[in-house]
Design a protein around this nucleic acid. Structure first.
Length: 424
RNA sequence: GGAGGCGUAUCGAAGUGGUCAUAACGAGCCUGACUCGAAAUCAGGUUGUCCUCACGGGCACGUGAGUUCGAAUCUCACCGCCUCCGCCA
């Protein structure tokens, strides 16, 4: 959520930044509502001040034996007026809240202006896409042939866009997850979290999934809970409505969770394999930082995600998203894209973002600066580290051999009890 | 799921219709005094939020609604925590 004070004091600046995302965005409604609200607020507060003043006098006058009947009658009338005015203000507050919740974050000033992913900027590449001297297979054929993936039965058990890992495949999936978690906790200093996989709507509002993206989520029918679309939601909300000591920042947290996405509106896209499912596993990194430090932390976060790809020796590139492509809550985002041979292009496998105080304002996460009295909002960041299903797919495709077997990346072998190859 | 109890600042906790909410009292923390230094002791400070350039004012005692001229205090609903019982991996 954007700061209403910032909007009020710098309307043009904020609006211009929003228009970099989408030229249709504007602040007209919010500004008008805010103006009316403040007028009514001043009026109501003056009346309340009067109420408080008189209420203090009443017991004194009574003590002196004076008749207060007239005063009480006047106060009753005043109370009526205050009640009406408070009702109006409450209504306006709700409207302002609604407007503010529907506005995306302002992109960082340095983010390149662009309309779509076509305008994203490649920052760097690592590794060379492998040249195949045989006809390569996509991961869904490789996995099914080796009997480590089963899409047909997953569809029977549940439905389309579900997948199932089997035997060595299930083990490899678990190995990838464990490797990532170990790397982040042991080498990168993260605290591992095993959070709830369902959250209430306050948490969904906190990170920005609600109210705008309800159709992307799975909601339970008997409780007002949602299946998490990413560990970002429960983990970022850990400190919702709390105040953190500055000495504790930055806070690094990582979590493995399954992720559930309705994938509404993506019919027909990536229908085969592990790339776009209703359920997939992901290891997520979440950071809390002081505002002055958050952009430095974004670089660190992105590097941590890159470390996983480097460790697995998977070629990738880093892309900086343009203003038209960054997510609703983000101010700046780097995507990591892994080389996917069957697609013959790089495919998104991680998204690392700085949300600045956008989520912290919604979730009310503050810290007390060591030098100052006032509480300040923290900055939140998160990044995939990485999407496990897509990593699995990338390993199958990049490490495939002519006979259809898969060489296991060196770093994963300890997690596979030394196994170096998956074959029939 | 049933019964009872409880939600007040960083923590403990008092307050049960109006000079007890500028939230008592205690602890913690910060500053100062004493000290070579520390401890102890003494003095002072220490909630958040909204409107306002400021002065100043409003709001908040789990949340919401109600009664009242006036609510932490009375009523209702909801949420959370604790104890006991039931059920359960």
């Amino acid at each position: 959520m954007l700061d209403i004070k910032r909007i009020r004091n710098n309307p043009e600046e904020v609006e211009n930044l929003l228009k970099r995302r989408n030229p249709e965005l504007n602040l007209k409604n919010v500004l008008e509502l805010d103006k009316v609200r403040r007028e009514k607020l001043v009026e109501a507060e003056n009346m309340k001040a009067e109420q408080n003043k008189v209420s203090k006098q009443v017991p004194l006058l009574k003590k002196e034996g004076k008749d207060v009947t007239i005063i009480l009658q006047e106060m009753k009338d005043l109370a009526e007026k205050v009640k009406v005015l408070d009702g109006d203000i409450k209504e306006i507050d709700a409207k302002i809240e609604e407007e503010l919740l529907s506005l995306p974050n302002t992109p960082n000033r340095d983010v390149a202006v662009g309309a779509s992913d076509a305008d994203n900027k490649e920052i760097r590449r690592w590794g060379e896409p492998r040249e195949f001297d045989f006809e390569l297979k996509p991961h869904w054929d490789l996995g099914v042939n080796l009997n480590i993936l089963d899409f047909e039965r997953a569809t029977k058990i549940t439905g389309t866009r579900f997948s199932m890992f089997k035997g060595t495949g299930a083990r490899l999936e678990r190995a990838i997850t464990a490797y990532m978690l170990d790397k982040h906790t042991v080498d990168h200093g993260f605290t591992e979290i095993a959070p709830p996989f369902m959250v209430n709507k306050e948490s969904m509002y906190g990170t920005g999934q609600l109210p705008k993206f309800e159709e992307d989520m799975f909601k339970l029918s008997q409780k007002d809970y949602y299946l998490i679309p990413t560990a970002e939601v429960p983990v970022t909300n850990i400190y919702r409505d709390e105040v953190i000591d500055e000495a504790e920042l930055p806070i690094y947290m990582t979590a493995y969770t399954p992720c559930f996405r309705a994938e509404a509106g993506s019919a027909g896209r990536d229908t085969r394999g592990l790339i776009r499912n209703h359920q997939f596993d992901k290891v997520e990194m979440v950071m809390y930082a002081v505002p002055e430090d958050s952009y430095r932390q974004l670089e660190i976060l992105t590097n941590f995600a890159e470390e996983i790809l480097k460790g697995l020796e998977l070629p990738y590139r880093v892309v900086e998203l343009c203003t038209g492509d960054i997510g609703f809550s983000s101010a700046k985002t780097y995507d990591l894209e892994v080389w996917m041979p069957s697609y013959n292009r790089y495919v998104e496998i991680s998204s690392c973002s700085n949300f600045e105080d956008f989520q912290a304002r919604r979730a009310n996460i503050k810290y007390r600066p060591a030098d100052k009295r006032k509480l300040e909002l923290i900055h939140t960041l998160n990044g995939s580290g990485l999407a496990v299903g897509r990593t699995f797919a990338a390993i199958l495709e990049n490490y495939q051999n002519e006979d259809g077997s898969i060489t296991i990346p060196k770093q994963l072998r300890p997690y596979m009890r030394g196994m170096d190859k998956i074959s029939l």
